[in-house]
Structure formats: C-alpha cells, structure tokens
Simulated assay, not measured.
Amino acid sequence: MPLPATPPRRATIRDVALEAGVSRGTVSRVLNGEPYVSAEARTAIERAVAKVGYVPNAAARNLARRRSQAVGVVVHEPHSLFLEDPNIGSILLGANAALSAADHQMVSLVIDSERDSRRVVRYLGGGFVDGVVIVSARRDDPLLAAVARLGIPAAVVGRPPGMPPVPFVGIDNRAAAQAITERLLATGRSRVGMVAAALDRDSGADRLAGFRAALGDRFDPRLVVERPLYAYGAGRDAMRELLEREPTLDGVFAASDVVAAGALDAIRDAGRRVPDDVGIVGFDDSVWALRCQPALSTVHQPAMDLGRKAAESVLAQMHGGAPQLEGVMLDTHVVWRASA
C-alpha cells in the first residue's frame, strides 16, 4: 500500500536570504515595500524570490495585522431553498463581485437550524472574517442581535422587524406588491387571491401588506393562503387549497416567482387555463419567470445589486466609514408578460 504523498516544502524568507546573500531583515523590508534597501540588494532579492518560488504566507501576515481579508455572507435559509431560489445565488454573486474587486474573499455560511445559528455566531466571533452580509434574516433574529453585540462591520439584505441598528440594503416590497396587484386587477379580475410566504421576514409581510392595500375594501382574508417558505412545493400546495376555498378564483398574486411556478402547475392540474381562466403574477423576475409557460408577469428586483451594495457597505465600514443606518433602497419595476 503506497504511503501518502508528503506535501512539498514551502520556501521561506530564510531560503530567499540565503540565495540572495542578504539578511532576513533586508528580505522582509523589500517584501513589505519599505525603503532604505540598496538597488543591488533589491534586485538580488527579487531574483531569489523567483528562483526559490517564495510565496508570502497570507495567513501569517493577516494574523499579524488582525485581519482575515475575508467577509462572511450568511444565508438564513434551508439547504433545499438555498439551491432552489435563484435570487440567493444572484445576491451571492453580487456580493462576491464587490469583494473580489476589493481583493477580499467571500465565505458562504448557510443557517438551516438553531445549531447552525450558534455555530455561525461562534465563527463570526472568532475573528475568521472581518465583516458579514446577512441574507434572509427573520423577525427578531438572534443572529442580528449577536452581530450587533460583536460590533463587527455588517449589512443586512432586507429590513426584518425588530432589527437592531445595523446598515441594510433593500427594496420597497410593499409598494412593488401593490403596483403589480393593481395591474392584475386592471385586467378585469374580480376574485383575486394571494399565496403569501415568509411572513416572518420583511419581504413576505410587506408583500402581503401591498396586496391588501391594492384590494382595499375588496380584500378577503379567506383568499390568502400562507406558507413559511418561498418554495415551489409551497406554491403548488397552497394554490390547491386556495382553489378549494374559492373555485371562482380568477386571479392570484404569488409572493415569489418560484412560488408562482408551483401555483401555476396546480392551476393547470385543476383544469384551469392561464391566463384565460386565472391570471397569475409573481415577484423577483428570476429565471423561474421565464421557465413558466406562459411567461410570468412579475416584479423585477435587482438581486445582484442588493448583494453588491451590501458588500460595499461592509467594506466601507471595515475601512473606517460610518455605518449608514438609514439604509439604501433600490428601485423595482413591474415586468408584464403573458401569464396575466
């Protein structure tokens, strides 16, 4: 049985100094960009670095500076939803783009349980990252309280109720939901319901509030079915329940595109046509909206920009900038397609 391969020895400053014929202190000054080194010594050291293959030990350097050059992005969602919801991926890509441009590493942390939450809090408190972006925080989320207590640079995507004073980046979910519901009503629909989801988050609660505002006196609480997550299965099952409650339903607002995709399949399974019998609209303008047949009318939210702005906020705080506690709000708009 072959023995495990021994990792190649890493070249050190001592190797560079021996090759260049100078002291380790002189090598250190050159590597740190310090003056007072002769041109001849600098040239010899640069040649020695190339010859011995020396690579600076970033971990040791960051330890000395008490910096990790890394920022955590915490996604508070079940593992299944992490893979199913394309908005999460877009937020992560936006955050990574901003961090990469600043020569920082993104560390993804997923919270799927209370145990995960405790583990992540310990990790953040251990100095492994210099700041944190939090996605999908809940109402009175203990993670937010822990981050505020730790005092590390942070930004939240969204603005959940009960949030401590932490910078945030978000959209006006209430106004956007009201706008698309009003557009749906303008097509002549008279019995309009909603598949509401994630009401423990600002996005879910505000979208329901916007739907209710659009309907005004016509709002019927029986025509709202709630589910805990933005998930395809949630939309499918909730839509079946909604059609059982109100067989004459002719319009529905689903709280997200992935929820709308599940709802649309349930409508078809019930023998109803979209948009002839039931018009349906979603929220996000994600890839799910174009996968649907017919294509889904929805609200476009700039998911990548949300991640990028949140990461930029954390980076600014890390470099001494004052936290923007008033938050940053990004624009949305209705995208009208064939589903309604």
Rank of each mutant, 00 (worst) to 15 (best):
D305V: 06
G282S: 04
G307Q: 00
D284P: 06
D284L: 01
P275Y: 03
D276L: 03
H300G: 12
L290A: 11
P294C: 03
I280W: 08
I280T: 08
C292V: 15
V274W: 05
L290N: 09
A311Q: 10
V281G: 10
R291Q: 12
C292G: 10
V299C: 11
A310F: 07
K309H: 13
V287R: 11
W288I: 14
G307P: 04
A289F: 00
E312T: 02
R291S: 08
S286H: 13
Q301C: 10
A295I: 03
P294Q: 02
V278D: 01
M304R: 15
S313P: 00
S297M: 08
Q293F: 15
S297R: 12
D305I: 06
A311M: 10
L296V: 05
V287M: 13
A310G: 12
W288H: 04
P302E: 07
T298W: 02
V281L: 11
Q293S: 10
A295P: 03
L306P: 11
P294R: 02
D276T: 06
D285R: 10
Q301L: 15
T298V: 15
P275C: 02
L306N: 14
D276V: 04
D276N: 06
L290C: 05
D276E: 14
P294A: 06
Q293K: 11
P275I: 03
V278S: 01
P294W: 07
H300R: 13
L296Q: 04
D276W: 07
A311N: 14
M304A: 15
D277H: 08
R291E: 14
R308Q: 12
P275L: 05
D305F: 06
V278N: 01
Q293G: 07
L306H: 09
A311F: 13
L306I: 13
V274Y: 03
A310M: 14
S297N: 06
A311K: 02
A310T: 15
T298P: 11
G307D: 11
D285N: 08
M304P: 12
G279A: 06
V278H: 05
G282T: 10
S313E: 12
D277W: 12
S297A: 08
D284G: 00
S313V: 05
C292T: 15
G282D: 14
G307T: 01
A311R: 08
E312R: 05
A311E: 13
G279T: 01
A289S: 12
S286V: 07
D277Y: 08
